[in-house]
Each structure stands twice: as structure tokens, then as C-alpha cells.
Design a protein around this nucleic acid. Structure first.
Lengths: 224, 224
DNA sequence: AGTCTGGGCTGAACATGTTCAACACTAAAG
DNA sequence: CTTTAGTGTTGAACATGTTCAGCCCAGACT
């Protein structure tokens, strides 16, 4: 039957995935070999490559799974009714991500390696991750939809906020303070600052500086 | 004689270095093997490891050499007499770096791989690169010494400017526009913006927002 | 039932960064 | 001149990510 075959295959894929994540958590990404992962999953080395392109792509699979699971939380954070101030929504949005990633923080650090190179398939800026990035930006657009932002800035705000929250996540990955306390602090202060800046951008007085900001954003978005 | 021995050793090191850089430029970092480098230098594979810890560390050696050679240029850019506005000094300072790196831009991209992880020996944020970072910050401190910046912000300004120029360099590394035209544009606009912000920071009116900025800077500097 | 087919899986082979025990050679000491 | 010591050099061996030619077998087809 077609079904049992697919089911069996999916079961093997899952066994490899779970074995890999467990090993990564126990020994770290670098220290875990593909042979060890395969052995732990009870398959030959090659089987891991039948299901995953590379060692990094297993981490990527976790990233995608975690990302899918957090969608509900992200939606709730982005649109919690008009009562919640923007600052709180933004902070909450980023917190949802950190909470979802937390159990495998050390594992995700592996992605940091290639994170800076947009050509890499596992870069948050790369083409392969575009769907997730765009969905993220759609949430963020919803988050600021009711803010009455100026016409020239508005189209860029989701991308800017996306970069903001990605920056926080990266900071969190390298933050070695106890319980990543520093990141929480940064999130609290920076979310307030970003929200404030967005409010200020609505004042007619700030138009000249807003023009420069938009210009900078457009240059950066043209490359990244 | 002691001298000839050292000289011969240094000659071998240099041969390996030149062979590696030439190969990197021709075929790229990833595509060049240590065996190819050694062969090109006319030595056995192991010899390369006698002189360099790893493949990346050869790139690091180039980085350090280029950095040493650009010191004069950096000093001139940082302190060109009171006539040159801060904006121009900052842009020139960063340009000096880009010009020095330019012939091996593709080679330096290899450092981007580990650039995000401060634990890596080849990270611009790591302990191994601290001397260069601090010398850089000394130039930048000199650059703004005559600007009369507010007491609370002043101690952080060199570090902020260092991050600024490092950001431009990284942007330049991933910038695929023709001749990295985008980076030039970004440098022009952003240097003006940074200089403007520093001037604005002197206005008593901006004290509250400056407090927030300082708070953010202190959190980030505590981790990075 | 026998045969065929294609996805799932195997494990040896490969490429390459890196290590290391052994060797070579130079220069100082005896 | 011989011995000694230590730097410089070798190349095989190792570890590990990745590839690949082929085997296995469930299920479709005759």
C-alpha cells in the first residue's frame, strides 16, 4: 500500500531527526558526527543523506519546525487588540521566538556560522528562507497596520522590524549571560526605543531625518 | 648562523602565504585545498601547518598584514586637521580600509563565516583580534576628541564608531553590486547621518533619548 | 505465482582539513 | 671532526562530511 510506505519513510526521517537533535543537545553540533547520528537512529550513514542534504540542513529542519509551531503565538503577539501598546507587541513577538528556540539554543548557534552569508541555504537572509521571512514580515505588517505611519516610511517598516527581531535573536544566540538575562534587558529597552522612534516618525518635524532614514533603508535592502 | 636560519624559515612561511593568497584569489577560499597550497609553495602538506594553525588563519594573517599596512592611512584619515568635517573623516577612515582589503575581497569573505561567533579566533569580536580592535578604537577616539561630545556618551563613541565601520566592511563583503557601488552609497549617506547624530547629541534637548541610547550601548557592549 | 519497478537503504569510497611520528639539516658544543 | 640539539620538513594516517553504485523489498502488473 502506498500509505504504509510513505509512513515508514517518514518514520525513518523522524528517527534521524530526533537522533540528531538529541545528539546535538548532548554534545553540541560540531562534536556530533553524521555517523553517530545514523548509528543512533539505527540506520547506515548514507540514510541520513537520503533525507537531509547536509548536517546543517538538519538544524534548518528544526528551525522550520519550530517556526511553524510558533505561528499561533506570533499571530497573537502581533495583533492582541488595540489596548496593547506597540512596544509590548514587539517585545512579545520576539519573546515568542526566543521561547520556541530556547530548548535548542546551542543547536541553533550552528546556523550562526553561515548566517552572515546570504548565499548559504541556511542564512536567514538567503533565498531558501524567503518564505519564512515573508510570513514574518506579514505578521509585522499587521502589527503596525493601525499605527498610521507616514507613507514614505510605512512600506519599509516590516522589513526594518524583521531585521530588528532577527538582530535580537542573533544577540541571544551569542549571549552567554546567565539565562540570557542580557538579551531580556536589551529586548525591553530596545522595543521601547523602536516603538518611540516609530511614534516620532509621525511628527511632521521629523520629515527631513526620516528621508535620510528611508534612503539608508533602501540602500541596505537593495543588497541584503 | 642564527640569522640565515630565521631568514630561511621566514622565507618558507612567506612562500606558503603567497601561494595560499594567490590560490584563494584564483579559485576562492573553499575551493583551494591545503594540499594545493603546499604543492604550490613547493613544500609538503604538513609544512603549511607548521606555520599556520589552520586554513582560516592564513586569511587572518592577510587581515593582520593589511591592517598593519593601513595604519598610516587610518591615522591620516582620523586626524586631518580641524578643517575636515567629522563626516568626511569617518567616511575616509572606512574607505582606507576598503581600499586596503579590495584586492582580496573574495578572500576575506571566508572570515565572514565565523565572523558572528565571538568564540572563534577569526571573529572581529573575539579575544584574538582584541589588539587590532583596540588600536582601531584609539584612532576613532582621536577622530572625535575635538568634538566636545557629552560626558555620558563620549566613552562609548569609539566603540560605536568601530561597530559602524565594521558593519560597513561586512556589508561591503556581501555587496554584489558592480564595484560595490551600493557600499559607497551607503558609506556616503550613513557617515553623514552618524556625524549628524553625534552633533545632535550635544543639544541639551536630546538628553533623555541619549540616556536610552547609552543604556542600549552598555547592554550590547556587555555581551559583544 | 512470477516478474518488474522504484523508493528506501547500505556501506565502502572519496575529499579534505588536520595531526603526528619520524627524518633532515644546520649550527653550536666538545 | 664528531656529537648533540633543536628547528624545519615530510608524508602517511586520521577524522569526518559527503557521494554513489548497488542491494533489498513492498507492491503493481502479467
Amino acid at each position: 500500500m502506498f500509505n504504509t510506505k510513505v509512513a515508514r519513510s517518514e518514520q525513518t526521517r523522524r528517527r534521524i531527526y530526533e537522533a540528531a537533535l538529541a545528539a546535538f543537545r548532548e554534545k553540541g553540533f560540531e562534536e556530533t558526527t553524521m555517523r553517530a547520528i545514523a548509528a543512533r537512529a539505527g540506520v547506515a550513514t548514507g540514510a541520513a543523506y537520503y533525507y537531509y542534504e547536509s548536517k546543517e540542513s538538519i538544524v534548518m529542519a528544526f528551525y522550520e519546525e519550530a517556526w511553524a509551531l510558533m505561528q499561533e503565538g506570533l499571530g497573537a503577539a502581533a495583533e492582541p487588540g488595540k489596548k496593547t501598546p506597540l512596544e509590548a507587541r514587539l517585545a512579545r513577538y520576539t519573546e515568542v521566538k526566543l521561547e520556541a528556540f530556547a530548548p535548542n539554543r546551542a543547536v541553533l548557534r550552528a546556523l550562526l556560522r553561515y548566517g552572515a552569508d546570504p548565499a548559504s541555504p541556511v542564512s536567514p537572509f538567503g533565498r531558501e528562507t524567503a518564505p519564512m521571512r515573508e510570513a514574518d514580515m506579514a505578521w509585522l505588517a499587521k502589527m503596525v497596520a493601525d499605527q498610521g505611519l507616514p507613507k514614505d516610511l510605512a512600506p519599509h517598516v516590516p522589513a526594518v522590524l524583521w531585521m530588528y527581531q532577527m538582530g535580537i535573536v542573533m544577540f541571544w544566540l551569542i549571549d552567554e549571560s546567565a539565562g540570557q538575562e542580557r538579551t531580556r534587558e536589551l529586548l525591553r529597552v530596545s522595543a521601547k526605543a523602536v516603538a518611540l522612534l516609530l511614534q516620532l516618525s509621525k511628527l511632521p518635524l521629523t520629515r527631513p531625518i526620516r528621508r535620510t532614514a528611508v534612503e539608508l533603508i533602501e540602500i541596505v535592502r537593495g543588497v541584503v
